[in-house]
Nucleic acid binder design. Structure first.
Lengths: 225, 225
DNA sequence: CAGTGTGAACCTTTTCACAGCA
DNA sequence: TGCTGTGAAAAGGTTCACACTG
């Protein structure tokens, strides 16, 4: 199945971004008891071209059977292993406002091997509160918590202005991957990865296309993501 | 009318995706009382190449002064108008679980011209509740609400399995842009736009790169500044 | 001069087309 | 026969280099 003898080399970023989508589609098929699938079925499930699917998979060294397709269970295992989801990843959330609480309670993480193990905040009123089965701790204990729990992934759910400070603190205690929901860019030393998720950015992009439609009538609606 | 290589205005998707980032950077500058800026400053604020900035702007027909730079206030106005943020967009949220509530309370939308005007849910226990200053209404009244309030943007914050059903309902009442937070792809007729935001996808991508580092030899990955 | 505007080179990603194999 | 695997072409996006101008 895997334990990959490391087939090709570097996986294109665009492929990496699609792996979670394949995973979701495959999980659905497996749950429905489906045994095998095709590049065409996968492609339509995630809305890309079938050759794209074949390129992605073959680039990972994953191979199907010609004339037949891919084995759902194999594929599931291989992609899961490629994404590093065979282990469980402890995660810390900084900032337990509305968004932080929502994420702490969000079931989708656990299902995929991410376990929220600590919540921290700077607001004294919040410290000690119980959220999603955890005590909220003082952010100044982050160092302690992160090391104790071997956390390497942190999520920032604070207001924008303090995001950088929180990120620095995370980096200082050995966190190497940060998912930043605060509406501010944070900068980190090389070797640390940041992904930015700004909810209002997505809305603004929708507004752009909405307004395009109103303004000048383009004949064919692209309909692309 | 003709679907040909139109000389005028076709903004590349990649540019559109950067506009909200420019906007945020510019808003910060304006707030700090800064009068003018350069492609270099903007570039470093959003972490792209300066020529990228000049390409983006000139592609929008926005022009600076050679040897000088761009006027912050002008630029702000032009990008805001390009994004359609001179008007206010009424938005409806379907699903008031943790995430829906967080979004309903999220300040970042209002600042940018998105106003949450209605919350709907299918759970009888939730209907009538007060969330973020709104009564939660029965999702079956969505049609009524959406038309009354001229909503064209909807956010889906329901569990995955009902997302498609909710999307269909939204489309049926005239909503043309959907931001889908549910972990499921929804399909819609052409002319309706969907953007998918899956919180666990982002985490999975981080996990991939995290694992890469652990696994392999240390051929210094670019790690782009 | 400092910093924009832009053609051309370059790189990444997607799509096409078809050979190859169960 | 049906569907994978993959070179080759096309499209899309980014970076370079430099002419140009206030």
């Amino acid at each position: 199945m895997n334990g990959d003898p490391v087939p090709g080399r570097r996986v294109p970023d665009a492929t990496v971004a699609r792996l979670p989508l394949y995973l979701r589609a495959l999980a659905g098929m497996a749950e429905a008891g489906q045994q095998s699938t095709s590049s065409e079925e996968l492609a339509s499930a995630i809305e890309v071209n079938p050759s794209q699917v074949r390129k992605d998979l073959s680039g990972l060294g994953i191979t199907g059977r010609r004339g037949v397709g891919y084995q759902v269970s194999d594929l599931l295992g291989q992609i899961r292993s490629e994404l590093g989801l065979t282990q469980s990843w402890p995660v810390v959330i900084a900032g337990v406002g509305n968004l932080g609480q929502a994420l702490a309670n969000y079931g989708g993480f656990g299902e995929r091997g991410f376990e929220v193990v600590a919540l921290v905040d700077a607001d004294p009123a919040r410290i000690g509160e119980e959220v999603a089965g955890h005590h909220v701790r003082d952010i100044r204990e982050l160092d302690q918590s992160a090391r104790d729990l071997v956390v390497v992934i942190g999520m920032i759910c604070t207001p924008g202005p303090v995001a950088q400070e929180v990120a620095d603190r995370m980096v200082a205690c050995g966190i190497r991957s940060i998912l930043n929901f605060a509406p501010a860019l944070v900068s980190v030393p090389t070797g640390v990865r940041v992904r930015q998720v700004d909810l209002s950015v997505e809305l603004q992009i929708l507004a752009f296309y909405e307004q395009q439609q109103d303004a000048g009538d383009w004949s064919p609606a692209p309909a692309k993501r």
